[in-house]
Design a protein around this nucleic acid. Structure first.
Lengths: 128, 128
DNA sequence: TTGTCTGCAAAATATTTGCAGGGAA
DNA sequence: TTCCCTGCAAATATTTTGCAGACAA
């Protein structure tokens, strides 16, 4: 059983984290890449993807799976998202997290249920 | 405003629909492709994707967005899914659809909310 | 006959990974 | 000095699309 890998604080990792933390529109990996490139034109896509996955794995940021690809979120508590089916905008949805639903799903399926994610679909104020 | 396009019943489209309807494990596009190829070795990926999208658009099947890609489902009523984070298996979760949540999300965000999808994450009986 | 649909292939999109050098601790 | 991390580039993976011929209605 290997010990936990010792992480290092690199400038690139901090830039990626800052890019996610500094905005509230749930950017895609490509948008994060574009943003960090403005600070450091040398940073590569591979590094951005690696750090997004690493930060998500360790729980510092959250990966939100929505139609069309992944989005990244600075909030890591259980919460929902609303996505516009026309322009793709994603915002947080302050809807009560129903922890009871996890137990219901576990009982019905035999799975060990750890969490759930809910994505609402509709039209944003601009697109409707 | 263009009239609705007149759809045609092709052998390929029926094979794709049968492949989704005939199984209950929420296949990926690639799995559907593999299955229809056994019936018709000439069918192309493009045709499979086109028909999956077409059937999904017209509401005959459902596209389920989960981490790792899209899955297709013969059930089109609002229902949830449970996914194993280890092996990727997806099953239906007979959890009560909370229509009230849509209104709650709409009020909180200003979006017009039409529906929502919930994906539970955990471990299936085999992987736990 | 009309116009949708198909197979093929190329393109577009999204993400991962091998490798050799760089740098944090 | 160790070994995790980076840039680069190639490899994967997934899905879409242009085109000419095929076929359902």
């Amino acid at each position: 059983m290997p010990a936990t890998i010792q992480r290092r604080n690199t400038r690139q990792r901090q830039l990626v984290l800052d890019a996610v933390t500094g905005r509230c529109d749930h950017p895609t990996a490509e948008e994060v890449y574009t943003e960090v490139r403005q600070r450091d034109p040398k940073i590569s896509r591979g590094t951005v993807y690696r750090n997004l996955n690493l930060l998500s794995d360790e729980g510092t940021i959250l990966t939100v799976h929505v139609p069309g690809g992944n989005r990244f979120d600075l909030r890591t508590d259980n919460h929902s998202h609303v996505m516009c089916r026309r322009c793709g905008a994603v915002v947080d949805a302050p809807v009560t997290y129903n922890a009871h639903a996890d137990k219901e799903a576990a009982r019905a399926t035999g799975y060990v249920v750890e969490s759930h994610g809910t994505v609402f679909l509709g039209l944003c104020p601009n697109c409707r």
